[in-house]
């Protein structure tokens, strides 16, 4: 007979994975909406956020119940604590997707800016980071979790590149006042999008840190980790 406790732990894990899948989809859709200037898709991201929020509440509820009723120990205790932290990071990543979608709705009202290759790369890195973070949790793979820190450095690099391109664009843009203002607005909104992506990458890195805590009982937060381990 399967223990009730184990069944509830599985329930907790499945709820978190469901939340992770929705969050991943939100980032995917938000970046697609930005790249394709798709207002409908951006709107769908904004509307879909409620579901992620509800799942975060459900994770908290199951975790609280397990802590109060089962007095978990060792790995189980770390898993429950880690899960609540990961769900918090996922909820904030989904909020970044909503923010990207809202900027996209603004950008769709105006002619597009020139293509920014660093933004494409930033989107790919951040999506890949989120995928790595979720996989590290599913596979309980600390090496993948640690690898996220390297990926985060790359995401930071592309964010800076986007910022540099757009500042240059604002400085060099047409002298006609009205056009210049519109250009500045589009650029600022696009910079915010890049910031949202960079933030999502940071949060994915945090997920990796929580996975390391669950699996290895080590706290790698605020510490330099030797990448040669991977």
């Amino acid at each position: 007979m399967e223990r009730h406790f184990i069944k509830t732990l599985d329930d907790l894990k499945m709820t978190l994975l469901n939340m992770a899948a929705l969050t991943q989809r939100a980032i995917e859709k938000a970046t697609q909406a930005y790249l394709n200037r798709d207002e409908g898709l951006a709107q769908a991201v904004i509307e879909g956020d409620r579901e992620v929020n509800n799942l975060e509440l459900k994770v908290d509820q199951i975790a609280l119940k397990l802590l109060a009723l089962e007095q978990p120990m060792a790995r189980d205790l770390r898993f429950i604590l880690g899960t609540t932290k990961i769900s918090n990071e996922l909820e904030r990543i989904a909020d970044q997707a909503v923010n990207i979608a809202e900027r996209t709705l603004f950008l769709c009202q105006h002619p597009p800016l020139d293509h920014i290759p660093a933004m494409d790369r930033l989107i790919e890195v951040v999506k890949s980071m989120l995928d790595t973070a979720i996989t590290s949790f599913v596979e309980e793979n600390t090496q993948k979790a640690i690898k996220l820190r390297q990926m985060d450095d790359i995401a930071d690099k592309y964010t800076l590149e986007v910022l540099q391109v757009l500042i240059a664009n604002m400085v060099q843009s047409t002298p006609a006042t009205e056009k210049r203002i519109v250009n500045a607005r589009r650029s600022v909104q696009t910079i915010i999008i890049s910031r949202c992506l960079e933030r999502a990458g940071d949060l994915a890195t945090n997920i990796g840190e929580h996975v390391a805590f669950i699996v290895e009982a080590i706290n790698i937060k605020h510490q330099k980790v030797d990448f040669d381990q991977s």
Partner: peptide, 11 residues
């Protein structure tokens, strides 16, 4: 011992 026991048997 109760948060990160060294041995699987204890865990």
């Amino acid at each position: 011992l109760f948060t990160r026991p060294a041995l699987k048997q204890t865990e």
